[in-house]
Write a protein that binds this DNA or RNA. Structure first.
Length: 566
DNA sequence: GCCGTTTTCGGCCCGACTGTTTTCAGTCG
């Protein structure tokens, strides 16, 4: 029973209780499920520490839910849940995934028509049985059928790195309109989450009609879903939906705050408002009927007694508590980054020459780069000893920004570095990474990484978990032991900024920062345009609460050289 | 069922939209 499975059970209990019209309990179960889902540790571990007592320290978990967690850990079952299931034997996950099917509707359709799953729902809708039930009608029935076809809630998510440039282009084009007084991207895109569900754009406009026309006629738009004067919704070429909402200037701040989210961050803010006898909504902060804030986000947070919280932190993972105590970190800024420490040239599997990479990096404002082609690795066109020597000579000839001569070496199944020490010793920066043998168990991978980090030339462990978004989960290892070793040996762990890696991810970056481990940002670019991904790396760092001093890309050249030589 | 710098009892986030209604319930974000 892992955290996700336990959370899922509590979500289902919440749904069933909701059907039964039991007040407030669903809210409690959902809250507990949410906290369990976002734990960074195995809940079993927490339980083993101090039993029920340590479970109750999880927010939203009290006496009763703690006992249920205990039962699940110990037996793998939950009698209370199974009893509920027997009375409500419907496939909640399936039916609930249909847009318009909430708990009350599912309950009603089960009671009246014994509908238990998607197949039965579709059959009933097609044969016109649903429209005859009180509270339903032809339109509802037709809509349900449509939504079954769409399976709308399961719309897939998209890579931040793909959507970010597309959304920015739309925003910038709207910004050109004279009528548009203010505009910003909201939602998970503003929080720079690694995957994005849809694009939310907020604007203030003097001419809503013209603005909406312009938006819905953009060349990126393939379908208009809704078009109104306050809100329009379109589907873009990439497949993602984009909303444009127009709001009044005096609510701009509170609307931006509201539409940036995330949801539990917002709920917490509303609770704080309520505790102060105020009301917070997307229209502002109200005392009775009087609006007392809402024009800017800063004002909203301030009025709630909080320091301003950067969008990347708004995930309800402790940022509100920190803001209250004025303990938010001073997050790393874009301009703190002086260079990129992982990229490939045509010496291995990259598309561009070293010179081309360096020139593009210079345009981006970098002061240095590290060329880190694969060494001794045939599959990726890795260099042999002679090519490595030639590469060094070429780097020394190139004028312009500082180029560190690096290498990306493999960590073998035994934890050895696949490039001999006599070569490594003359290289400025050595990146080591696992590129094969992902299936080893947790212990084996941990040992493999630890052994590799004992090599005295290794400076950076690249893409430490090996995950690929939407593709591969990544291998497991004992994070804490790797952190301790990295600190002991003066090795940095990488935030690989390649769009489908983002590895370490935000959660692990936060843990690393807490452990005072140094991090390095590298794009892993295989062509010059991919050097743009460094922005994604900064986003992950910021979402992981990283400060300037946590990231070695912010070091001065001298300090960085010292770090590499250690 | 959880939780508390106004509470160990009495509260629990807010508003828009929609379809089916004659004043609202359910769903969504």
């Amino acid at each position: 029973m892992n955290n996700q499975q336990i959370a899922q059970i509590f979500y289902e209990i919440a749904e069933i209780l909701e059907m039964k019209d039991i007040p407030f309990k669903p809210w409690a179960y959902r809250k507990a499920a949410q906290s369990i889902e976002s734990l960074t540790r195995d809940i079993k571990e927490i339980y083993e520490e101090n039993g029920l007592k340590s479970l109750k320290e999880i927010p939203g978990v009290g006496e009763s839910i703690a006992k249920k967690i205990e039962e699940l850990i110990k037996t793998g079952h939950l009698r209370a849940y199974e009893k509920l299931k027997r009375k409500m034997p419907v496939n909640l996950e399936e039916l609930g995934s249909i847009q318009g099917m909430g708990p009350k509707t599912i309950q009603k359709l089960y009671k009246k028509l014994k509908i238990k799953n998607l197949k039965e729902l579709e059959k009933a809708a097609k044969s016109g049985k649903i429209r005859k039930i009180a509270g339903f009608g032809e339109k509802r029935e037709r809509e349900l059928l449509e939504n079954i076809g769409m399976k709308k809630k399961k719309t897939k998510r998209f890579l931040l790195g793909l959507i970010f440039p597309e959304a920015k282009e739309i925003r910038d084009s709207l910004k050109q309109l004279r009528e548009v007084k203010k505009i910003e991207i909201g939602g998970s895109l503003r929080r720079m989450k690694e995957t994005i569900g849809d694009v939310d754009i907020l604007a203030v406009s003097n001419d809503p009609e013209k603005t909406m026309d312009f938006f819905t006629k953009r060349k990126e738009v393939v379908k208009i879903l809704v078009k109104g004067l306050n809100k329009s919704s379109v589907r873009l070429k990439s497949g993602i939906n984009a909303d444009l909402r127009l709001i009044q200037m005096e609510s701009y701040g509170s609307a931006l705050q509201y539409f940036t989210g995330n949801k539990s961050h917002n709920i917490k803010l509303r609770n704080i408002a309520r505790e102060k006898g105020l009301k917070l909504s997307e229209y502002g902060i109200f005392k009775g009927n009087r609006k007392i804030a809402g024009k800017t986000e800063e004002e909203v947070y301030k009025r709630l007694g909080l320091r301003y919280i950067e969008p990347e932190l708004r995930e309800d993972t402790g940022e509100i508590e920190s803001a209250k105590q004025n303990k938010l970190p001073n997050l790393i800024k874009h301009y703190d980054i002086k260079g990129d420490l992982h990229m490939h040239s045509d010496y291995s599997d990259g598309n561009n020459t070293i010179k081309e990479m360096a020139e593009y990096a210079s345009i981006l404002g970098h002061k240095f780069i590290a060329i880190t082609d694969h060494g001794f690795y045939k599959i990726a066109g890795g260099m042999d000893e002679k090519e490595i020597i030639n590469q060094k000579k070429e780097i020394n000839r190139i004028r312009g920004i500082k180029i560190f001569h690096g290498i990306e070496a493999n960590i073998t199944k035994e934890g050895l570095i696949n490039v001999p020490d006599r070569i490594l010793k003359d290289i400025d920066v050595v990146i080591a990474a696992i590129h094969s043998g992902f299936k080893q168990d947790k212990q084996a991978i941990t040992k493999r990484l630890l052994t590799a980090m004992d090599n005295k030339y290794v400076n950076i462990i690249a893409h430490p978990t090996g995950r690929l978004l939407f593709k591969r989960k990544g291998y497991e290892f004992d994070l804490q032991r790797i952190f301790d070793k990295a600190k002991e040996r003066g090795i940095a762990l990488e935030i690989n900024a390649f769009l489908n890696r983002l590895d370490l991810n935000d959660v692990n970056v936060k843990l690393a920062v807490d452990n005072k481990v140094k991090l390095s940002i590298g794009t892993d670019a295989h062509s010059k345009e991919q050097l743009d991904f460094y922005k994604l790396g900064i986003a992950v760092a910021r979402r992981g609460w990283a400060k300037k001093e946590d990231i070695i890309n912010t070091y001065s050249m001298q300090k960085l050289e010292r770090f590499f030589r250690r």
